[in-house]
Amino acid sequence: MKPDTLDWTLCRTFLHILEGGSLSAAARHLGFSHVTVRRHLEALEGVLGGPLFTRSPTGLLATDLAHRIAPAARSMAAAAASLTRTATTDQEAIGGTVRIAASEVVGGEVLPPMLMELRRAHPALRFELALSDVPEDILRRDADVAVRMMEPTQASLVARRVGSVPLGLYAEARWIDANGLPADAAALLATRALIGQDRRTEYLAALAACGVGASRHHLGFASDSALAQLAALRAGLGIGVMQVPMACRAPSLVRVLPEIEFALEMWLVTHPDLRHAARIRVVMEALASELQGYLQGRRNTWTGGRDRPPQPGTTTFPPGPILLQP
């Protein structure tokens, strides 16, 4: 197969069939007729030299060939989306789409009010928010801007350090009323009510670094979703980790063993080709200011709690290995 014989339209149709499980689903999403979708599939199979799907009572099943080409097709889709965002946005106009990558907690809990302020100042801006605790590849343009909880390792990225994010142990006041406030690490472990990760182990490693030898037997609730952990904490299921500035917004949360405190580094990152684009420059500057305000409790949005800023001697983890609830 020659490189120039592969039509992106065919790959796009293939991805929608793969995700939708049928020709009809792909046709509805793309706005094509069923016949057009089938022709696209047949044309791509002809180019690749093999079938991509087989029929089953529950729909179309992807073949081994389909699974092998899917990652490359998704990369093509990401590149096409990035090209569209770049081509349709004037470099000097403060408008257009900005795709922001962030962890579950930062993206779900911290960024939305900040993006609202940005939209109020620049109504022509549009945001796409990609939430994952696995960093997006900025060099591949999977996102325009990323909020990362570790120092970037790719030297060619444009990176700006925002600050250090303190994390501590918290419990809902109702849980404290029913179970009491642990006086030390031994009492903490005796509750067997820690909220932590399911298959991942960074949470237990972080506690161990602070002198708390916890194991899975001490967990009362386990999930690899940081948002699920936060929901469990707020529901009163036990004691969990939370960003200190975030906990300050919730009067019903009580700090548990304040001497146990972690810290994560927060960075803003963008692609070097985007640093001079007006929309990226505005978003980077605004987020830097807002996130620093969040960390320092400057804005009313983030204040009103009963905690303190990070203290000297706080445990700061090296970049990469500790990813609690970023």
Results as ranks from 00 to 15, higher is better:
residue 24 S to A: 15
residue 76 M to D: 11
residue 24 S to I: 11
residue 23 L to T: 04
residue 32 F to S: 15
residue 63 T to W: 11
residue 39 R to M: 10
residue 41 L to V: 09
residue 43 A to E: 07
residue 80 A to D: 15
residue 77 A to W: 14
residue 33 S to L: 07
residue 23 L to Q: 05
residue 68 R to E: 13
residue 41 L to I: 10
residue 60 L to A: 04
residue 55 R to A: 07
residue 59 G to I: 06
residue 29 H to M: 11
residue 49 G to Y: 06
residue 67 H to F: 14
residue 67 H to T: 10
residue 35 V to M: 14
residue 36 T to L: 07
residue 69 I to A: 06
residue 26 A to F: 11
residue 44 L to M: 04
residue 64 D to Q: 14
residue 31 G to Q: 05
residue 56 S to G: 09
residue 80 A to N: 12
residue 59 G to E: 03
residue 77 A to S: 15
residue 38 R to D: 10
residue 50 G to W: 01
residue 35 V to K: 13
residue 77 A to K: 13
residue 37 V to H: 07
residue 48 L to M: 04
residue 26 A to T: 08
residue 81 A to L: 06
residue 41 L to E: 07
residue 83 L to H: 12
residue 60 L to D: 03
residue 70 A to F: 14
residue 23 L to G: 10
residue 36 T to C: 09
residue 48 L to D: 00
residue 67 H to V: 08
residue 51 P to I: 04
residue 57 P to T: 04
residue 67 H to R: 15
residue 81 A to Y: 01
residue 66 A to K: 05
residue 40 H to A: 13
residue 61 L to T: 14
residue 71 P to W: 12
residue 51 P to F: 03
residue 43 A to C: 02
residue 34 H to V: 14
residue 69 I to L: 10
residue 78 A to N: 06
residue 63 T to S: 14
residue 54 T to P: 00
residue 81 A to M: 03
residue 26 A to S: 14
residue 78 A to W: 06
residue 63 T to M: 10
residue 36 T to D: 08
residue 46 G to S: 07
residue 58 T to W: 01
residue 50 G to F: 00
residue 63 T to C: 13
residue 51 P to L: 01
residue 56 S to A: 15
residue 33 S to M: 08
residue 59 G to K: 09
residue 80 A to W: 09
residue 66 A to D: 04
residue 42 E to G: 01
residue 55 R to F: 00
residue 60 L to S: 03
residue 40 H to C: 15
residue 49 G to C: 02
residue 74 R to Q: 14
residue 46 G to Q: 06
residue 69 I to E: 04
residue 39 R to I: 08
residue 66 A to S: 15
residue 52 L to W: 02
residue 41 L to H: 12
residue 24 S to F: 10
